[in-house]
Design a binder for these strands. Structure first.
Lengths: 293, 293
DNA sequence: GATCTCGCATAAGCTGTCCTTATGCATGCT
DNA sequence: AGCATGCATAAGGACAGCTTATGCGAGATC
């Protein structure tokens, strides 16, 4: 069955509720003439008069009075459902994030976001995958890369810098790390990581021969960090992820020199969602965190 | 609260029900691109993803799955209410009609209309008023006049002709009515009716002196007809309204000469309702009745 | 492995629905 | 008599809603 235009039904609902075309127009943000026009259109499509007209007044006909309650209820249902959806959608923020970023940077700081936004529940999806926001149900994400993703807005967080770090206990076994060459005396947690070559080149050492099993891998940097803290070897890590450990002495960073391969960490979200309140709230909070550092 | 566009909500309802943008498009009589566009629009307005996209497939998100039942129910309610309204509106035909036309022409014939349209209930509003269809709840009407009512469609029924009629019993009291002047020997039911003057002028008698109380009035012709049948006097009546009585001998029409003041009876309805099925049904039936006479 | 099929996504642009403006009408009020 | 108010309508404009054309990515088929 062909429904009449929904715009006209909606106008009818408001006019019936108000008993006035002028008041309905005001509520709907249109002119009284538009209300009059839509009612006439609906009456023609339905094949019955919905209002009797008197000067300065309209009265629902029998037909109109019978139709109105069900239409009103239906619109109440739609309004409630949409409002609940918005509230709920506004109530859960799903963040897809690189696991290391989640573990070493975000989660330790999330407390202040949640204090600032008590009504927002945060759901983390820790994955190294670069997700497609059309295909997965996330609102916003943390990625690493060049930052150029079509249809997305990307805010730079910090660079994916790297430099060697180790446990002070491990360093003491060789009388401390005084030159970059001292690293060659120690086991390397992930000697096949291309970041090592880049770093040694930055300190003027070509083709260093690193100790350790080149087949050993932890996959995620934060797991590598755990191994380094445990004294299992030297790791090449991102300083921004280990501020707490460096401050507390759990790790030491023997040299200030850091490597970079033009990779950065980014906050990203689809352009279409740039005005969604919860997305803006998180963006604003995170950018503020970066300023405070 | 600002609802998102209803067109988009309607599209969402169909897409959710079908689990397919293409199938929803087919049902709604639009292209798949339009469905895709509306869903995207709705997602932006709601601030949440409603579908997850896979190649050749869409799946409702958690948010979409929660929204869909309430929206579906609301649209079912709207569809049912509109259908019931149409059915009911289509089920009752309200005819506003001149009382005499109702009593002496329409009601005796309505049987054949109702046999032809058993699902249509007929409601008569007998009134001599010329109603405003915008202000009163009638679908169609019978009027007399010139036939020129703006915004209305008018079909001519027959002329508002008139000629003297009387009971044969009354005629016998004066040995029958052989010339127009014989009427002056008999009481006239409504001597002030201007139709008399017009009729006598048509038969060449100027300024006839009619017997009877000029202040006596019945208002409606069918009531005057009752008085004439009862032998209370001569009436000036419309032959079309008294076919049955003339055939049965209850009334006699002594002369064939009829008067007319350019008045006709009309079937009228608002132009806006010319395509309403029940209005067309009644119009077609009545015009057919006229042909059969 | 190449090609085809299918359903969703999007850009560009068109159309007709929905609206505004201006004005008329008919009550009721002052 | 003049004014205020709310509904009705014609004329015309704006833009929401749509179409067309085309791209993309899985899965199916050859």
């Amino acid at each position: 069955m062909n429904l009449p235009p929904l715009a006209a039904i909606r106008v009818f609902e408001a006019a019936a509720r108000h008993g006035s075309f002028t008041n309905a127009a005001e509520e709907l943000g249109m002119t009284q003439a538009a209300v009059s026009y839509q009612i006439k259109l609906l009456e023609e499509r339905i094949g019955a008069s919905l209002f009797l007209r008197r000067p300065r007044q309209v009265i629902l006909t029998e037909v109109g009075a019978r139709l109105s309650p069900a239409i009103s209820e239906a619109f109440d249902m739609i309004r409630a459902a949409i409002a609940a959806t918005r509230e709920n959608a506004d109530g859960i923020l799903t963040i897809t994030t690189i696991p290391t970023f989640a573990a070493n940077w975000l989660v330790p700081r999330l407390g202040s976001f949640q204090l600032a936004h008590p009504s927002l529940a945060v759901r983390l999806q820790a994955t190294r995958e670069v997700i497609d926001f059309a295909r997965q149900d996330a609102d916003i994400g943390i990625r690493s890369g060049g930052g150029n993703w079509p249809g997305m807005i990307a805010h730079k967080i910090f660079g994916a810098d790297f430099t060697p770090m180790l446990s002070p206990v491990l360093a003491a076994t060789i009388g401390g790390v005084n030159t970059p060459m001292d690293f060659l005396k120690l086991p390397i947690v992930d000697p096949s990581d291309p970041w090592w070559k880049i770093w040694f080149a930055a300190v003027g050492v070509a083709d260093p021969e690193l100790r350790g099993n080149p087949r050993g891998r932890f996959g995620d940097q934060h797991l590598e960090g755990k191994a380094v803290i445990a004294g299992q070897g030297v790791g090449i890590l991102t300083p921004a992820f280990f501020e707490t450990e460096l401050k507390s002495g759990l790790l030491i960073q023997p040299f200030d020199i850091v490597g970079n391969d033009d990779h950065f960490y980014w906050l990203v979200y689809p352009e279409a969602r740039r005005n969604v309140p919860k997305v803006r709230a998180f963006r604003d909070w995170l950018l503020e965190q970066l300023v405070d550092q």
